[in-house]
Amino acid sequence: MDRDNKLEHRCLLLENREVVPGWHLLELQAPDLVHASPGQFVQLRVGRLTDPLLRRPVSIHYAEPEKGRIRLLFRVAGRGTALVSGFKAGDNVDLLGPLGRGFPCLDEEEPAIFVAGGIGLAPLFFAAAQRSRVSLPFEFFLGGKSGSLLPPEGYFQAHGIKPRLVTDDGSRGGSGPVTALLEEYLETNKAPLRIHACGPGPMLAGVVELARSAGAAVHVSLESRMACGVGACLGCVYPFRSGDQVEYRRVCREGPVFNGEEVLFES
C-alpha cells in the first residue's frame, strides 16, 4: 500500500477573492497538489456538518509548484458554492485530489486551441498557462454572457494568455457565440489541430461538430454532480457512444476530460 499517496489534504486558504460578480478565486497553500495536471479537479468539503452533505468538484485553475500553491476558480451556483464563497483567509480547506484525468497532449508542438464558455475557462486557463510558460503556441477563445461577467484582460495577460472574446450582448469583443470564433479560425487555418473545450453542454456539442468537419482532435471537460469523486459510486456518469451502444462512463474517473467525438450530448 502506497501510503505516501494521500487523498485528503487540509489546505490553508491564503486568499478568497471575488474576481467578477459570483466568481470566486481561492488561493491555497497545497504543496501536495501542485503537480496536478490541467483538467484535474479536487473534491472540496463545504462544511464540517452534514448539510450540505456532499463535497463539490472544483477544477484546478492554476498551480505554482515553486510556491506550493494552487488556485481554484468557481461560480456560485447553489447553497454549497455559496457557503464556499464565504470562506476566509486563514481557514483550512479540506480537499480530495488531484482527481480525474486532465487534458492530453498539452506538450505537443502543434498549436492548441482552447475554447471556453463562461466559468469553463477555469481548467483551460491552467492548460494555456502551462503552454505559455514553455512558449508553445495556442489560441484561447472565450465566450460569456456579458463583458462585466468575465475577468479583465490583465487576469489573463499575467500568464501569457491573450483571449479572443465574444459576449452574448456584445459588451466586450464581438457579439455571438464562442463557437463562431472557432468556426472563423478553422476556415482560415488548415493545419492539423487539437481543440480543448470546457463550457455548457450545447456549446461543447457545437465545438465537437466544428472539430469533426475540420478533422481536428477534440477534448472536452465535462461537469457533473458527484458523490465520491473517485469512481466508486457511479453517480456522475455521462452517456457515450460505444459502437452502436450507449455506455455510461464516470466523469470523475474516466474524465472529466473526454474525447469529444464519443460524448452523447443531449440534442
Partner: peptide
C-alpha cells in the same frame, strides 16, 4: 447492466438520493 440515465444523484438535507 447499463444502469439508469443521468442525473443519478440529488443532494437532500443531510442525505442524498442515488439512482444508479
Amino acid at each position: 447492466r447499463q444502469g439508469n440515465p443521468p442525473p443519478r444523484l440529488a443532494e437532500t438535507p443531510s442525505g442524498m438520493l442515488n439512482a444508479v
